[in-house]
Design a protein around this nucleic acid. Structure first.
Lengths: 206, 206, 206, 206
DNA sequence: CATGAATGAGTCTTCATTCAT
DNA sequence: TATGAATGAAGACTCATTCAT
């Protein structure tokens, strides 16, 4: 055989096409919405033939799942990278708010995808019960909280509860921002929310 | 007139059929998901012919919008009713957490509908930019917070920010609960979250 | 029985409703075209309920047939009336051209109905093989030609052939005029056609 | 390129399928009438799947338009070919009558299609105001008349008017023949009409 | 006679997926 | 591997007709 179909070069080419398709999924879904996105558009965007898509993914559903998992993993890695430079866990936690918003909104269509689209398919949850897109992301957030607690820079709070609060609240305002076509004072609201979370609802002294 | 199309009897019958269809929409959507729900199933569930649906709603989209608006209004009214008996604004706010969960989860499929399905259509936001399903609900929550501030039972917090926190967090855990088929310790988590929110993240004395 | 349901008054009322429906058919069809015309619109135009239509006509098809037959009979009677005053058969024949156009185009939507719509249903010809809408009209035209021949005012021509020529040609240009939204020099073309028909294609002396 | 979508073979196959669909349109429409013809029957007649039809035509309407345009062009070409051998313009014109009938009636369903069906859609005239199916055909007829005039074989008549007379009359008797299921003496009537047209209605000497 | 709400069969069109090349 | 033409099932919506009142 003159050429090895498992050669590094071929594998890389294969992998690049796979990624091209996934990028096309994310871009197209974000623009058109989940159910208006069809294979033919994805194929066109990825510069491959329609049939080719099925050489890399078993079905449309699988393709979407994989695309989002990849996306979430990427985003989490970026987040970790960004927080690496912060010295204390407290600083990391503080920056988490900012970076989360930056990471999600730097490409608005991804915010739409995460905040709105990805939730739309109970089909997914039925077919893929193990599908927990935000799991790692939240786990990481929770670890930051635990670290901050350990270094005594924040109170001895329920870190799981806090991670839900932070993630849920952020997710909600990001969704608002996305569905309102960016007409929502995202950063300002983030700051106001952060302030509330730090201080709690009780009056000091109570 | 022998055949009065506006007679009380006829009007009541029409209204009851209209509501039957809307109930069928909500139930079916919650079970099957938005895009797997087709008119024929709704009609069957509502015990009417397919064509009949179009005597009451102009299109599938309109039907879904109306169904949710009705649902949201109903839920808000129930909530207000339940909180009526509470004496102080502080008590109302405290109970809001519980009642929100009760109201939403008493019919699990409605939780699914609100938490997951309703977000799935950027089409809706495009077609009906004024569509803000949670607006009244959040506005009411915010008024509760303002009242509690006024009676000095809670700190002088940013009530808009707080309402986003509460609603976003509740929404997130309700979604978790719904997509995980109720395998999520909803009430317990709610209590833990409530506790965190009361106290904030800062150490007392800071 | 206090009142006789076959009394002249009742019968007249019945007949008037029947005619109202038929008028509505003709008007609506002419405006919207045959297949875009539905019973509900006809009923609205005729100021009756949808179901009422079926008290007067067995089906939509029958209704259309009857409406056109009525229309054709009316038009033919008008035509005869108008020609009554002409003295010679030759004059009648001459005027026939003008009056045909006047009668047909005085209400443009009727021209459309006759020229375009009525031909559109081979269904009609299958279901009602005896349906020959123009039969009486052409028979009358032919009789005019025969009369003119008898009084020696025109040549001894083939009157059946002539009637087809006249009717076919008129029908064609009326159709042109109708489908082109009246942007067709109808009267001028009629005069030019009439002139040709009088003289024939051969050179004098041939 | 291993899979050349523009290879002669592939293109030929595509073109043949396109023509098969158009033939199916014409045949089915002629048999069933325009509005009783549905895509599924056309697809069956053309031996393709329903969806395939939409790979070749954007919509049902477009399909019908294109089918007729193709048909009219084909017929006109056949007509021109047949008349090519005639020496004088006068002969061509004389033969036009015969050939028109032959061309149209050789496939009876096409006569039905041209004479009856194609007129049935004011929709078409609205959507495609430029749609003038018989334009080229009549223009050609008119040019024959002009040529005959030029060679002095017929009188100096109004050629536009004559072309309307010939076409209108032919169209009318062909329609009669078609809707009466061929029970109409077409050729005989054509001869009688032709004779009248040659001589005109006036008495010689007038 | 009159009504108009209800019916449900019928149709165009879309699109995920397959498969011959 | 890659292609894209072909497939055909599915689904929203329309409308002639019926029938309980």
């Amino acid at each position: 055989m003159a050429y090895n179909k498992n050669s590094a070069k071929v594998l890389a080419k294969k992998e690049s096409k796979r990624r091209a398709i996934m990028q096309a999924v994310i871009k197209t879904v974000a623009e058109k919405g989940f159910h208006k996105t069809n294979i033919s558009e994805i194929a066109k965007e990825a510069n491959v033939a329609e049939g080719t898509v099925y050489l890399y993914f078993k079905s449309k559903d699988e393709m979407f799942i994989k695309a989002f998992e990849e996306l979430a993993k990427d985003k989490l890695n970026i987040m970790k990278k960004m927080l690496e430079n912060e010295e204390s866990a407290f600083d990391k936690l503080s920056k988490f708010f900012d970076y989360h918003i930056i990471v999600i909104t730097e490409t608005p269509y991804i915010a739409r995808f995460i905040g709105v689209e990805i939730r739309q398919s109970p089909q997914f949850y039925k077919k893929f019960p193990e599908y927990q897109p935000f799991k790692d992301y939240i786990a990481y957030l929770q670890s930051l909280i635990d670290d901050a607690k350990a270094e005594k820079s924040i109170a001895d709070v329920d870190s799981e509860a806090v991670s839900y609060i932070i993630f849920g609240t952020m997710d909600y305002i990001l969704t608002e921002w996305a569905v309102k076509n960016q007409n929502f004072p995202l950063t300002e609201m983030k700051n106001r929310i952060e302030k509330v979370l730090r201080q709690g609802l009780l009056k000091r002294g109570n």
